[in-house]
């Protein structure tokens, strides 16, 4: 693997996570429980779309074949996307969205914080900028998790079920491959083993505050966990997300918009 290959793969993965969770957030527009949360949700989605654009542009530069942000977003088939399965799961209700956001961003923020100090200057800059955005998201979502967990009996029950639904997808965050190894070794990138421990400590502390039980499944127990996103083996839901998003670019090849 060349330096450019590994870095490009890594940057694309980050971009795919950002775009796909952003797209899921966009699907929630005009369906939030209160008007003020519409503004919050749109801010989060805008941050993610912005991150995806920066990451894709950089991936295109690393590749050096003239591909730009929209080529990566609109002209790759679903199996070429390398996002985590968690971010592509359908939205469900508000509690589902909050749980997914908390679990993913608790990882993503740690990842970005490490990358902000990595050896690649461009990636470090993008990460440093994203850290500011995701810190706020995670704070907002964490407070919501506490309110829902420690709110009414109904909200507690609902969000407990959300947690059970999404928990199994978290293992994939820490299931590194040779690209992750390379980034850690050659680029001073995140140590996924160390991240897993911090993630678990942070999430458990938050769940305790939210009066929510920690789900039984052991994250290391691979039979329970769900992975495959980074091999392009997605869930059935994903093809629809991609088909909808890419519709115009696919229907009118080569057109400018």
């Amino acid at each position: 693997m060349t330096v450019e290959d590994a870095l490009q793969s890594y940057v694309l993965r980050l971009g795919d996570n950002a775009l796909v969770i952003g797209q899921r957030m966009i699907e929630r527009v005009a369906g939030e429980p209160e008007l003020e949360e519409e503004l919050a949700n749109a801010n989060f989605a805008l941050d993610y779309i912005g991150q995806a654009r920066m990451l894709y542009s950089y991936a295109g530069e690393l590749e050096g074949k003239g591909r730009g942000e929209d080529d990566f977003a609109y002209l790759r088939d679903s199996q070429e996307f390398r996002n985590f399965l968690m971010v592509e799961q359908p939205n469900g209700h508000f509690g589902d969205a909050i749980v997914r956001q908390v679990l993913f961003e608790s990882f993503y923020l740690l990842q970005l914080e490490q990358l902000a100090d990595c050896a690649d200057t461009r990636l470090a800059e993008i990460a440093a900028r994203a850290v500011k955005e995701i810190s706020y998201h995670l704070r907002h979502a964490s407070q919501w998790l506490i309110r829902l967990g420690d709110g009414t009996d109904e909200s507690h029950q609902r969000v407990k079920e959300s947690l059970e639904r999404y928990w199994r997808y978290a293992a994939e965050f820490f299931d590194g491959d040779d690209v992750d190894d390379w980034i850690q070794r050659e680029c001073n990138g995140p140590d996924l083993g160390a991240l897993a421990k911090t993630w678990r400590d942070n999430v458990e502390a938050l769940l305790e505050q939210a009066t929510l039980p920690i789900p039984d499944d052991n994250l290391d127990q691979t039979s329970f966990s769900r992975a495959g996103g980074r091999q392009g083996n997605h869930s059935e839901y994903f093809g629809f997300l991609i088909a909808e998003m890419q519709h115009l670019q696919r229907a009118f090849p080569g057109a400018n918009w």
């Binding site: 749109a42 805008l46 942000e69 609109y74 918009w257």
Partner: peptide, 19 residues
């Protein structure tokens, strides 16, 4: 049309407008 906006730039602009 948010989920189907034809470019990422158009998607961001439209989302900012709807927001």
């Amino acid at each position: 049309w948010l989920t189907r906006a034809p470019t990422l730039k158009r998607k961001a602009i439209l989302l900012a407008k709807v927001q």
